[in-house]
Amino acid sequence: MIVCVAVVGHQNNPLYLQSFTEADDALKLHHIVHCSLDVIEERVNNPKKSGPTLNETFLGLLYPTENYKVYGYLTNTKVKFILVTTDLEVRDADVRSFFRRFHAAYVDAVSNPFHVPGKKINSKTFAARVSSIVKTFGSGAA
């Protein structure tokens, strides 16, 4: 189950964070997303390590913890997408396609002329679209 998706701006500021847990504990997800920036930063700053995936937007698994997994995606404009899931068996291809669709949704959202670049995304349409992407995650719809 995806518990959280987030968009983080190029200055590491949160642009959008949606949790999909029932409990009122979004703050811990804020924490997880925020801390995962460390990993993204490390990857980006040490291109040697990431090796062949240097030019790829999909950063892969950031956190191999016991209980949840964090996946990252970095756009050309240094906007990060972060996905937190409690599914421990996740196919990489699923995550890739999820991020691709999420990226498309994000691009549509920020293309809105009333959106100020670098500001939080408040679009309800975007939220709805994200929810639908999250719902269909892993179902092979992509």
Partner: peptide
């Protein structure tokens, strides 16, 4: 705190 919650509340 968020950090403790993140690590404990998702730990079965």
């Amino acid at each position: 705190s968020p950090v403790n919650s993140a690590s404990l509340s998702m730990l079965p």
